[in-house]
């Protein structure tokens, strides 16, 4: 047993943990981006229906649920090992140079720690805004789909993304994702020893391609929401705009306590709480 722990805590072992968790997080991001492209349907009613049904699937389908725990674990492990490595690496260079030539192959490769910290901050904010609200949140809109009640996560996303300064935070974070992967994806392969004359240039290209794909893909969401529902200065203003437009476009709208909402609740059983 001890040899496993010693391997994983060696310098190369810690890097392997970074690589495996990191590459797993990339596969998650790909799924996350493609799934959430449903937010971009121009019709509010069909976008709401599609996205909210998808949200139920993603939070209840056992295989995806199990993967999501792996995901939380990976985020925590990736951040913790990164913290250890950073502290250790700082200790290995106690005195800084007066003049530094910065020979690293990219700006991103020199700033992975800062980029990663931005991302950790973002993930906490992001999960607080959506994941936590979805599972344990208070008074939020629900909608009717085939007689059943669905949490209107679409409206929540639309509301958040209509607030311009939230969107700015998102856009900055997406730039951080892009730069983090510009280096991180290819670095993950190198750490695993996967370097080959035939493939390394392709992997490096894929790394850059993914970075651009994520920046463009994810940034399109807040931008699309601001285009759809207008730019708001705060959440209340945004919530009203989203509600009015949704109702106008045919979304059945009620407010209720999400934390008490049982799955498979019939639409007529919903007791409306006061909107705000």
């Amino acid at each position: 047993m001890n040899w496993i722990i010693r391997t994983l805590t060696s310098s190369v072992g810690k890097k392997v943990l970074m690589s495996l968790t990191g590459l797993f997080l990339v596969t998650f991001l790909i799924v996350h981006l493609i799934g959430n492209l449903q937010l971009l349907y121009p019709n509010v009613l069909s976008a709401s229906e599609k996205f909210n049904v998808y949200a139920v699937f993603m939070t209840t389908f056992p295989l995806i649920k199990a993967t999501s725990y792996l995901l939380y674990g990976s985020i925590i492990l990736h951040a913790l090992v990164a913290l250890f490595l950073t502290l250790q690496n700082k200790k290995a260079r106690p005195t800084a140079y007066a003049v530094n030539g910065n020979a690293e192959k990219s700006w991103a490769s020199r700033n992975m720690g800062i980029l990663g910290s931005i991302l950790l901050f973002f993930i906490i904010m992001h999960m607080g805004q959506f994941w936590f609200q979805y599972h344990f949140g208070g008074n939020h809109p629900v909608m009717e789909i085939d007689g059943m009640t669905y949490k209107n996560l679409y409206a929540l996303v639309a509301t958040t993304f209509s607030v311009w300064w939230f969107s700015v935070l998102y856009l900055i974070s997406m730039a951080a994702v892009g730069f983090h992967l510009w280096h991180g994806f290819q670095s993950g392969f190198q750490t695993l020893g996967l370097n080959h004359v035939k493939y390394t240039s392709l992997i490096s290209l894929a790394s850059k391609g993914l970075a651009v794909f994520f920046i463009v893909g994810f940034s399109s969401m807040p931008l699309a929401m601001m285009a759809q529902f207008g730019v708001s200065n705060n959440l209340d203003e945004a919530a009203t705009k989203v509600m009015n437009k949704s109702i106008k476009e045919g979304v059945e709208w009620k407010m209720t306590d999400w934390s008490n909402l049982k799955p498979d609740t019939k639409w007529d059983k919903i007791v409306t709480t006061n909107a705000e």
Binding site: Q88, N89, A92, S106, S109, Q186, T191
Partner: peptide, 19 residues
């Protein structure tokens, strides 16, 4: 032995090969 000596971990920046 490399770890024991207190060298840092590689983050694949490529600076070493460049220099």
């Amino acid at each position: 032995q490399m770890d024991e000596e207190g060298f840092g971990s590689c983050t694949n920046t490529g600076a070493c090969s460049a220099e």
